[in-house]
Amino acid sequence: MTLSKLTFCPLGAIFDVDDTLLDNYAGHLGKNLHEHARLLAVREIGQKYRISGLVEVSDEQNKAAISRASEHSIEGSVWQLMYEVGLVDSPAVDHDNALLKEIAARKRELYEPVLREFGAPLPRALEFVKAMYVLTDSKIAIASGADKHNVQAFLQTSGMSTVFEERRVIARQDFVRAKPDPESFEMAFQTLALADSDRGRVLAFEDDPKGVAAAKRAGLYVCAITSRFSEAELMKAEIVPDMVHGSYADFADSLGIVL
Results as ranks from 00 to 15, higher is better:
residue 6 L to K: 01
residue 9 C to G: 04
residue 12 G to Q: 03
residue 14 I to P: 06
residue 16 D to V: 06
residue 17 V to S: 06
residue 17 V to Q: 02
residue 18 D to N: 13
residue 25 Y to D: 12
residue 30 G to H: 14
residue 33 L to C: 08
residue 34 H to S: 08
residue 35 E to F: 09
residue 35 E to M: 08
residue 36 H to S: 09
residue 39 L to T: 02
residue 40 L to R: 07
residue 42 V to P: 01
residue 43 R to T: 06
residue 44 E to N: 12
residue 47 Q to D: 09
residue 52 S to D: 15
residue 56 E to F: 11
residue 58 S to P: 00
residue 59 D to E: 14
residue 64 A to S: 10
residue 67 S to F: 03
residue 71 E to G: 04
residue 72 H to N: 12
residue 72 H to L: 13
residue 74 I to A: 15
residue 79 W to E: 10
residue 81 L to T: 10
residue 81 L to F: 12
residue 84 E to P: 01
residue 89 D to F: 00
residue 89 D to S: 06
residue 91 P to K: 01
residue 96 D to K: 14
residue 96 D to I: 04
residue 96 D to W: 05
residue 99 L to R: 03
residue 100 L to I: 08
residue 103 I to D: 02
residue 105 A to D: 11
residue 106 R to G: 02
residue 107 K to P: 09
residue 116 R to N: 13
residue 117 E to M: 10
residue 119 G to R: 05
residue 119 G to N: 08
residue 129 V to M: 09
residue 132 M to L: 14
residue 133 Y to P: 02
residue 135 L to G: 01
residue 139 K to P: 11
residue 140 I to E: 00
residue 143 A to I: 00
residue 144 S to R: 00
residue 144 S to P: 02
residue 145 G to C: 06
residue 147 D to Q: 13
residue 149 H to D: 06
residue 151 V to N: 12
residue 152 Q to W: 03
residue 153 A to I: 03
residue 153 A to N: 08
residue 160 M to W: 00
residue 160 M to K: 01
residue 162 T to V: 13
residue 164 F to R: 02
residue 169 V to S: 13
residue 171 A to Q: 04
residue 174 D to W: 07
residue 175 F to P: 03
residue 184 S to P: 03
residue 186 E to L: 08
residue 187 M to A: 09
residue 188 A to E: 00
residue 188 A to W: 06
residue 192 L to K: 08
residue 193 A to I: 09
residue 196 D to E: 15
residue 196 D to L: 11
residue 197 S to R: 14
residue 197 S to H: 14
residue 198 D to F: 01
residue 199 R to I: 10
residue 200 G to T: 09
residue 200 G to R: 12
residue 204 A to Y: 03
residue 205 F to N: 11
residue 206 E to F: 05
residue 213 A to M: 11
residue 215 A to Q: 07
residue 216 K to I: 07
residue 216 K to M: 01
residue 216 K to F: 04
residue 217 R to L: 14
residue 217 R to E: 15
residue 218 A to C: 14
residue 224 A to C: 12
residue 231 E to N: 04
residue 232 A to N: 07
residue 239 I to P: 01
residue 239 I to M: 05
residue 241 P to A: 02
residue 241 P to H: 06
residue 243 M to W: 06
residue 248 Y to F: 15
residue 249 A to L: 06
residue 251 F to P: 00
residue 253 D to L: 13
residue 254 S to K: 13
residue 256 G to C: 08
residue 256 G to K: 10
residue 257 I to Q: 06
residue 258 V to K: 06
residue 259 L to F: 09
